[in-house]
């Protein structure tokens, strides 16, 4: 066994002749690099099929590609503003028809934000509670203010007022609470308006101008 192995020659457990190397022949080098990106081919590729059908499909394919670009489904990336307005931009502008998806078929979160808000159970609750407080408390506050104007400052008159309303144990603190609540109510309104405005902007301006962070802020707004 050891005799036919030769010095420095790797020892194989099998007969190398079986894989096509004659005795004493040099083995090929170890390949250390990946195969070439564009290897030579021994055989030329066969020509493509041609015919009426093939030509028609080719035309269809190219037409389809063009049409797809003009469909409303093709969402273009907002391109960065160029310093010089290119003349052809003005008339090459593609006309796209409006596409309104059938919201009934889509998850509710897909809808633009406005509708989402109204439908969301969370917002409903806040609105409901808001309404309740406004109905009961604003009247109170208004009355109080009126009476305060008439009678001038005085804790007693306040107490009397409260008695009239039927809440005997209400003290100054309770009064403060009321006012606080009213103030809070105002805040709510402001916030809501702000957001609705935000929403409107984002809706009509395509939302492209808004970065990811502005969105996040909006979502995290507390009610």
């Amino acid at each position: 066994m050891a005799g036919n192995k030769g010095r420095g020659r790797a020892a194989y457990t099998f007969n190398i002749e079986a894989v096509g190397f004659s005795r004493g022949e040099k083995l090929p080098d170890v390949v250390l690099k990946p195969p070439p990106l564009f290897p030579d081919t021994d055989y030329k590729p066969v020509p493509l099929k041609t015919g009426e059908g093939e030509d028609y499909m080719l035309a269809l394919k190219q037409e389809l590609r063009e049409t797809m670009r003009r469909m409303p489904y093709f969402i273009e990336t907002p391109e960065e503003k160029q310093d010089i307005e290119r003349y052809n931009k003005r008339y090459i502008k593609v006309y796209k028809e409006e596409w309104i998806p059938d919201w009934r078929r889509l998850p509710r979160e897909m809808m633009p934000r406005k509708k989402c808000k109204k439908a969301g159970p969370n917002s409903k609750k806040t609105k409901d509670t808001g309404k309740d407080t406004s109905l009961t408390n604003t009247e109170d506050v208004l009355k109080k203010i009126e009476e305060l104007e008439k009678k001038g400052d005085g804790e007693k008159s306040d107490e009397e007022n409260d008695e009239k309303e039927g809440s005997k144990e209400k003290s100054k603190e309770g009064d403060d609470d009321d006012e606080d609540e009213a103030a809070e109510q105002e805040e709510y309104d402001e916030e809501e308006q702000e957001e609705e405005n935000d929403y409107i902007n984002s809706y009509f301006e395509d939302g492209d101008d808004f970065g990811a962070d502005s969105d996040d802020n909006m979502d995290e707004a507390t009610y």
Binding site: P101, E109, G207, D208, F210, A212, D215
Partner: peptide
């Protein structure tokens, strides 16, 4: 999706609408 792709929610929604439509 919006977080991982770093895309704004509005655009993700639009893209998903298109993909669902097709």
């Amino acid at each position: 999706i919006a977080h991982d792709t770093g895309t704004s929610l509005d655009q993700v929604k639009k893209a998903l609408c298109v993909l669902i439509q097709h």
